[in-house]
Simulated scan of single mutants.
Amino acid sequence: MSNETQGPDGTDRADRNDRSDRATRVAALRPAYQADLADGVDRFFAPRRTTCPWCRSDRLTTRLRTTDLLQHKPGRFVLDRCEACGHTFQNPALNETGLEFYYRDFYDGLGEQRMGGTFGGRTGMYRGRAESMLPHDPTPKNWLDVGTGHGHFCAAAREVLPGTTFDGLDFTDGVEIAEREGRVEHGHRGSFPELAPDLGARYDVVSMFHYLEHSADPDRELRAAHQAVRPGGHLLIEVPDPESRYARVLGRWWLPWLQPQHLHLVPVGNLRRRLTELGFTVVAEQHAEPHDPVDLLAAVWLALDHIAPREDAPWLPEPPGALRRGLRGAVLLAGAPVFVAATLLDRFAVRPLSHRLGLSNAYRLVARRE
């Protein structure tokens, strides 16, 4: 490394500038976050439900109690399970104010660069998702990706389907970035159910990759999809599998719980039946293919990050001192061998057997609109 990019203490100047820039942004955001938290977090939640939002049964049990293990924003979250149909849902659920608070600076703002790098590096997974459509429609003319984020799936899928026009829809400014960067042809910003009537059965394929679980009303989203898919076209859905054995074995450290963002986790049988009721025919169900081999690695990271002192964030009353920063680095460094072991187990031991062992963390359905 040249002296032009290295500081007198041997650190990379670009890294130091990034850290300094982030510290400045955190300090600027802190007053607004502290004002939001001045009256506590109860105002972020809707009243607790006494019946299942999927089947209306009152046979509810508590499945999980946890905190925000990714951003570490204040709050405690409960997932209930319906004993009648198996649907798992956040209860009490975040209201609109709460959703805005907990999504803020996750995918955009402070989190934009980090999440952009995470999603941008998953080209193989995105290609696999696109390839799952080939047996059912190898030449779709147009495709709408709902919950597209920054459009990285669409950019990768274009390599699999070069003759397809990809549009994206999202309620964040990520879709505008996707259009500006040329990853999508058209970016629709807003609520899918509200925009669907104007889309008018236009698309050969509508995809929802890890989108439905974020919705406050999954059934409304499915009805919107029925409006946007042309007759004979396909709906492609991928969601976390709440029936995965990992969900029980890893408990709160199972990444797909993703509290407080995931509001509904739908068992595959429930989703198949609802799609049939709406006028779709499920033509494919996959479990092994959508499995993302990160469960053990993510669990180790979440646990170590939980016990390590916090890194600076605007929802903390004050920035951590040098001692806390040093302790955090020491904890994460000590966990490095466990990270390596967990990664090897995820990719080489569990992945080939994930579906057979009931450990697949996601499932994918392809449904044709009749």
Rank of each mutant, 00 (worst) to 15 (best):
G269W: 05
A35F: 11
T11L: 11
A156I: 00
D170Q: 03
N142C: 11
F77L: 00
L265S: 07
L134N: 08
W301Q: 07
R220A: 15
T97P: 08
R25E: 12
A228M: 04
D219Y: 14
D58C: 02
N91R: 09
T165C: 08
W254F: 14
R59C: 03
G187N: 07
G174T: 04
Q113P: 08
L236P: 10
P242G: 07
R180T: 03
V300W: 06
D241N: 15
R19E: 15
A303P: 07
L258Q: 11
G116N: 11
R76C: 02
R369E: 09
E311M: 00
L353K: 13
L94E: 14
L304E: 02
R22N: 05
A247N: 00
D137H: 11
L344D: 02
L302Q: 01
N3P: 14
A38F: 10
R16D: 15
L263P: 10
F339G: 00
S244D: 08
Q6W: 15
G10K: 06
C85S: 11
T148L: 06
R220G: 12
N95H: 07
H214Q: 03
E131Q: 12
T61S: 15
A298W: 04
D219I: 12
E289D: 12
P140H: 10
A228I: 00
T148M: 11
P260T: 02
R65I: 05
L323Q: 10
F171I: 01
D80V: 02
D198C: 09
L323T: 12
K141A: 13
V300P: 12
R81K: 10
G232C: 03
L235N: 03
I307W: 06
D145G: 04
A130Q: 02
R129I: 01
L235V: 00
E285D: 07
A201M: 10
V331F: 06
V331H: 01
A156K: 02
D295L: 01
V340E: 05
R272G: 04
Y246K: 03
